[in-house]
């Protein structure tokens, strides 16, 4: 298995947000989804930096929408997870579950 096959924590969160939003995932909705679900306020720059990195790795693709007046005539850039991205999410998720299997995390923390 190649060394960089697992997703980083924030990469993992961002791809899960893309999967939840399906066809309507762009900077604003991804940021708001993360904030609503896990209460973590992130900057739009952090979202784009991560999405660009994921796109370079082939885990997501993007396409431009139509320019809209409420955005000052600028286009939305929509993102979608690829099959490779989905496989990376599954691999990372499985790795977490395997590592956590059998651990009583709450009890360990309290000791």
């Amino acid at each position: 298995m190649p060394k960089r096959d697992f997703l980083g924590e924030f990469e993992h969160i961002v791809i899960l947000a893309l999967l939840r939003l399906s066809g309507r995932a762009y900077g604003v909705t991804v940021r708001q989804e993360i904030q609503t679900r896990i209460g973590r306020e992130v900057s739009i720059g952090a979202i784009y930096a991560t999405l660009d990195r994921l796109e370079d790795k082939g885990y997501v693709t993007s396409f431009l929408g139509e320019p809209t007046p409420e955005r000052g005539g600028r286009s939305k850039r929509f993102f979608r997870a690829t099959a490779k991205g989905l496989a990376a999410v599954n691999r990372t998720q499985t790795a977490f579950l395997k590592m956590a299997d059998g651990l009583r995390l709450a009890a360990t923390y309290l000791q």
Binding site: E70, R71, S75, K76
Partner: peptide, 15 residues
């Protein structure tokens, strides 16, 4: 490449 989408997102959320 990022300029229209980043600024567009910020303007949308600002509004």
């Amino acid at each position: 490449e990022q300029s229209p989408s980043v600024l567009g997102d910020l303007v949308e959320e600002y509004s």
